[in-house]
């Protein structure tokens, strides 16, 4: 086949565009897959660490929310949203709580303390539930991932089950 010098520049340009686009795509795909793996592997566990009555009509509950990310490759931060304490059958609502911290940087294992003061009518409801020991700490976590071209946030529902009598 006869070689045409005039075709060298467009062929070179086409090969360059192919290589650049494939390298950029492979890089983006790798980050995307890592992000999906992080999202699928993220685990939450809620543990009640302390429960005490601090006043006649006031009780304090303390939890530790443990966020586990196996092999984290995408920088991420977390915010706990709309946390509520409910009875196990979800019929009795015992209050709405959020953490003081807004954005918490996530590592492979991150422990986030959460605290709730149950007082007034909520305290009375808690007393009425005395026979029902199992309670739910229900909420959601907004996980914000730092990506090369902006941020991606996902809201993940979290439920912690705990028993007051055992504490």
């Amino acid at each position: 086949m006869r070689f045409d010098r005039r075709r060298l520049a467009p062929v070179g340009l086409l090969v360059l565009v192919l290589v650049v686009s494939l390298v950029l795509l492979a890089w983006a795909e790798r980050r995307y897959v890592e992000f999906l793996e992080t999202l699928q592997g993220i685990q939450f566990s809620v543990q009640l660490t302390d429960f005490e009555q601090i006043a006649p009509q006031q009780a304090r509950l303390r939890w530790v929310v443990t966020v586990t990310i196996p092999n984290p490759k995408t920088p991420a931060s977390l915010e706990l949203l709309d946390w509520r304490v409910r009875s196990a059958d979800e019929r009795t609502h015992l209050g709405y709580y959020t953490t003081g911290e807004t954005q918490i940087a996530l590592a492979s294992v991150t422990q986030i303390p959460a605290e709730a003061l149950i007082e007034g009518t909520n305290f009375e409801k808690l007393q009425r539930l005395a026979s029902e020991t199992t309670l739910l700490f229900v909420g959601s976590a907004r996980v914000v991932f730092q990506l090369p071209q902006g941020r991606e946030s996902k809201i993940i529902p979290v439920v912690g089950v705990f028993a007051l009598q055992n504490q």
């Binding site: 494939l22 795509l25 795909e29 990506l147």
Partner: peptide
């Protein structure tokens, strides 16, 4: 490959 880089799925992950 270039069109994939500008898709809504991959745009944020692109360099």
């Amino acid at each position: 490959a270039s069109a994939a880089l500008q898709s809504s799925e991959l745009l944020k992950f692109s360099l």
